[in-house]
């Protein structure tokens, strides 16, 4: 069936099977491979993107459920060569080790600050509950989110 959505501001349309997962639509049909597939079972958060501005796990959504919606992936955050403030904070705080969880972490963190603009450290840790870093590099990830929030707590 025909599915159309906006991804990072661009209109994207493809004919897909109804069982096509949104993450596959993004990676294979739209060709945007920044969104990673990790556990593929809505646990790890590596595939986190925004649908209408809110973080969701794109492995647990059908492409047809995003038909007509506004999708943002990690590729859509930076403004040209200028990193998004959350990306810049991850860079400055060295909030990554192997980097596999990073796109999902950044997308979840941006959504978190939209909902809780000035979080405590505990709120950051709880807000990123849906994202796993198997390098266990959480310390610097939390520091980056707090830096992006402007909090020098």
């Amino acid at each position: 069936m025909h599915v159309s959505m906006t991804i990072n501001g661009a209109d994207v349309s493809h004919d897909v099977e109804p069982r096509t997962l949104l993450v596959h639509f993004i990676r294979e049909d739209a060709g945007l491979t920044g969104t990673n597939i990790g556990c593929d079972s809505s646990s790890c958060g590596a595939c986190t993107i925004h649908v209408n501005g809110e973080a969701v796990k794109s492995c647990t959504m059908l492409a047809v459920q995003a038909d007509g919606q506004d999708v943002t992936t990690i590729e859509g955050l930076a403004d040209g060569e200028t990193l998004h403030p959350m990306q810049q904070a991850f860079h400055e705080c060295h909030a990554l080790q192997c980097g596999y969880c990073t796109p999902g972490m950044v997308m979840a963190a941006v959504s978190l600050l939209d909902e809780v603009p000035d979080p405590t450290e505990a709120e950051v840790r709880e807000g990123l509950e849906g994202n796993l870093c198997r390098c266990t590099g959480y310390h610097n990830i939390v520091a980056a989110v707090l830096q992006a929030a402007g909090g020098a707590r």
Partner: peptide, 9 residues
């Protein structure tokens, strides 16, 4: 319930 991403859907 779940995590923030789950609760958004």
């Amino acid at each position: 319930v779940g995590d923030p991403q789950v609760r958004h859907r």
